[in-house]
Amino acid sequence: MEEIRDAFGGAFLLLIQRDTALLEIVFLSLRVSLTALFFASLIGLPLGSFLGSGRFPGRNILVVLLNSMLGLPPVVVGLTVYLVLSRSGPLGGLDWLFTSHAMIIAQFILVTPFVASITRQTVEDLMEEYEEQLTSLGVGKIGCLFTLLHEGRYRLLTALLAGFGRAISEVGAVMIVGGNIAHLTRVMTTAIAMETSKGDLTMALSLGIILIFLALSLNVAAQLLAKVGRA
């Protein structure tokens, strides 16, 4: 019990003192996850909008595939990215393995289905509610889609927040493709795993507190946005 109390005390001290090693890990985590989320949004938002608003043969199969990808095991994604980026792999020439680029790719693969799937559901629900009214007002298909995206902007932000939550809390895939190299690919989750195994609970807890704080902040932001969006 005393050990845990000391660990908490030390963790708060590290946070207050703005420990350089700690901040480096936090900023790298944010950079990797936000970049992965940015690229996931570039693909996921249009893909989800297309699937949510379009009616074409094979759409249902695509939706099932997309939903299935929500359950992608991170370690399998990590292993696949590892194989693709390893020297003997098809993209080995890029020399990205054990760099933040590889971690971004892995997180991108994990986050894109989240963003696309939530966007699809949002657009589909909005279509059901708005389509007839917008058609009645003489709005074309493209105009209708842009209006729906505007109307559902808070729900879509929730999708992005969920994607960010998935990215920042991921450990398996980034550990495999990043290698948890100090000052290069060490992020919060991999550092927590390593410090715990080393027995340095103070550092592990500091990172854990920041991670929880980020998760809580995101949830509060999502709730507030959802509340605003309902108005």
């Binding site: 509610e129 708005y130 007839e132 009214q133 009645s136 007002l137 209006t147 109307e151």
Partner: peptide, 12 residues
């Protein structure tokens, strides 16, 4: 021509 639907949908 315009129409007022039975359950009109208003934009947010």
């Amino acid at each position: 021509q315009s129409m007022v639907l039975q359950r009109p949908v208003l934009l947010r």
